[in-house]
């Protein structure tokens, strides 16, 4: 009887979570689809975002995400390999893992604030896509690191032992065994990191983006328009139905992008599980 109650309770909670997700999706589709038109993805926004599409905003978001991953991936990969392949003391490993979780739990507005103070005030670099991508890189570092570490740690120990027994040095083992066998896990981490970066607004608001007047960045010190800032600014014009409709449309594009990245990450994660079961 008690077991049945627990099962029902857990089932209800699961249903609530799924219902919540689908209701968000449903609302996004209902509100966002009317704004969609043939050129929404490929047209420049006009009339301060009240008309046109989100072409440059999408490109700006992709630039920030992609460059952030380029900064973050080598650091995440290096720190994971250091922890898993070179560190022998459990305490230091645990300490570094906890640090990662703390970094992950840090409110994102703080990243924006610190980034603004460091780059904007002290270094006087202004608002630019390079600054924004650096801040995003720090933010997505824990996501990438956790995902890559899971993949590396899931690698059966027998592969490492077989490599050791053949007299392969640690760098060779990393290059020939660890990285190829963890490839899908690393790619999963990259996509999850991209998805995390795509959903971020606060951190880049101060440091990387402006709402209007820019298209492609022409130099390292130029800002970029992003979907996140676009939505934020348009949503503040609650009295204007055109702005709100455009904001929902941009929101749907952003959600679609995050979903696409997450689904791709899932697909790669499935490969990781298969590889680790070999």
């Amino acid at each position: 009887m008690a077991e049945k109650m627990v099962r029902v309770l857990i089932g209800c909670i699961t249903f609530l979570i799924v219902a919540l997700l689908f209701s968000i999706l449903g609302v996004m589709l209902l509100k966002g689809l009317p704004a969609m038109h043939a050129g929404f993805l490929f047209e420049e926004s006009r009339d301060f975002g009240r008309a046109g599409g989100v072409y440059y905003q999408s490109i700006g978001t992709l630039i920030l995400m992609g460059v952030a991953v380029l900064w973050s991936l080598p650091v995440a990969l290096g720190s994971v390999l250091f922890q898993t392949e070179y560190l022998d003391t459990g305490k230091l490993k645990t300490f570094l893992t906890q640090l990662t979780y703390i970094l992950n739990a840090t409110p994102t507005i703080l990243f924006g604030l610190v980034g603004y103070l460091l780059f904007g005030v002290y270094l006087d670099t202004g608002v630019s896509w390079v600054t924004g991508s650096l801040i995003l890189a720090v933010m997505i570092l824990p996501t990438l690191q956790v995902s890559i570490r899971e993949a590396v740690e899931a690698l059966p120990e027998k592969y490492r032992e077989a490599g050791m027994a053949l007299g392969l040095s640690r760098p060779t083992q990393i290059w020939r065994i660890i990285l190829p066998q963890s490839f899908y896990g690393i790619v999963t981490g990259v996509f999850l990191g991209l998805a995390r970066a795509a959903g971020e607004t606060a951190a880049i608001m101060f440091t990387a983006t402006t709402f209007s007047g820019i298209q492609f960045p022409q130099s390292f010190s130029d800002p970029v328009p992003t979907l996140q800032t676009h939505i934020l600014v348009l949503a503040q014009e609650a009295s204007n139905p055109e702005s709100i409709a455009q904001a929902w449309g941009a929101g749907l594009v952003l959600l679609g992008l995050v979903f696409l990245l997450t689904l791709t990450a899932w697909a790669f994660r499935a490969r990781v599980v298969m590889e680790s079961e070999l």
């Binding site: 592969y159 077989a162 027994a165 053949l166 007299g167």
Partner: peptide
Amino acid sequence: YALRRNVGLVFQKPCVF
């Protein structure tokens, strides 16, 4: 590493890559 190349170990269960 040179030692391990000189002293090969074959495991109980075969581990092919």
